[in-house]
Design a binder for these strands. Structure first.
Lengths: 131, 131
DNA sequence: GTAGGTTCTAGAGTCGGCTCTAGGTCAAAC
DNA sequence: GTTTGACCTAGAGCCGACTCTAGAACCTAC
């Protein structure tokens, strides 16, 4: 059911084997990956799930240092839930802020697009959903 | 009315003087900044406005090379509006994609936040907007 | 006239986040 | 038994986007 090679995990997660080793060195894994008889990494389902979380945290712009910090808290076990919550809430706030920023930029871009469409006589003036 | 030093522009835009010079070297300015008698940069309102656009494009994740490309099109003058539109639309699409990605990540984070709030007995269970 | 602040150029340095290389081990297929 | 391919470590290299440094010119105020 479990016991994946680094190559399989790479395929499954979309990360490269290089990146997987790099993330491990950086301390992003909840627990050190188990090794087989010959020293090769053997990933469990839990590792893959955790990597999934890391990937989403990264994708939402959390720096590796913060992910490491969160990982360390999880690794330390029960009793620090408040701290974990703080890390997550802070990040949540950052993501929301970032989304608002993107939304603002998008408005400028959309304006410019409209201007150029107008200039090129491309503007589709069919009212679609004017309330 | 106009004629700003690099320091004033830095203050006004929030960019550092280093970054302003760097952006100019990188060809991000619509036209080369004018120079005063002693070779110092003298920015016009137009330059500041253009920098504002660059800042928003950067803030929305457009790489410098793309901003340069767009700038070159604008600098080249009329006749390439279709190309400018293409650059903008492509970026618009990227921003939208990014926002959707962030939104997906946000859901995970928000779930985790809720879980920890629950564990800590902090959850505000007042139903607010249950449809 | 001189001290302090701003600006200039060219080029070096930094930082985050990968990405790749070299040199080696190991297992399975031929 | 050797070739192929996945894997190992340690460490170097790369890329984008700044950020800073050195050494010199200039401006203003005292």
């Amino acid at each position: 059911m479990s016991g994946l090679s680094i190559g399989q995990v790479a395929e499954r997660t979309g990360l490269s084997v290089h990146t997987l080793r790099f993330y491990e060195r950086e301390g992003l894994l909840a627990q050190p990956v188990q090794r087989g008889t010959t020293g090769r990494r053997v990933y469990g389902e839990g590792d893959v799930d955790w990597l999934g979380v890391c990937i989403r945290l990264r994708a939402s712009g959390m720096p590796l240092t913060d992910i490491r910090r969160y990982t360390e808290l999880v690794r330390a076990g029960r009793g620090n839930e408040a701290e974990r919550l703080e890390v997550l809430r802070e990040h949540q706030e950052r993501v929301l802020t970032r989304m608002r920023e993107l939304d603002g930029c998008l408005k400028l871009i959309t304006n410019k697009v409209a201007v150029y469409e107008g200039r090129l006589g491309l503007r589709d003036d069919t009212p679609e959903c004017t309330p």
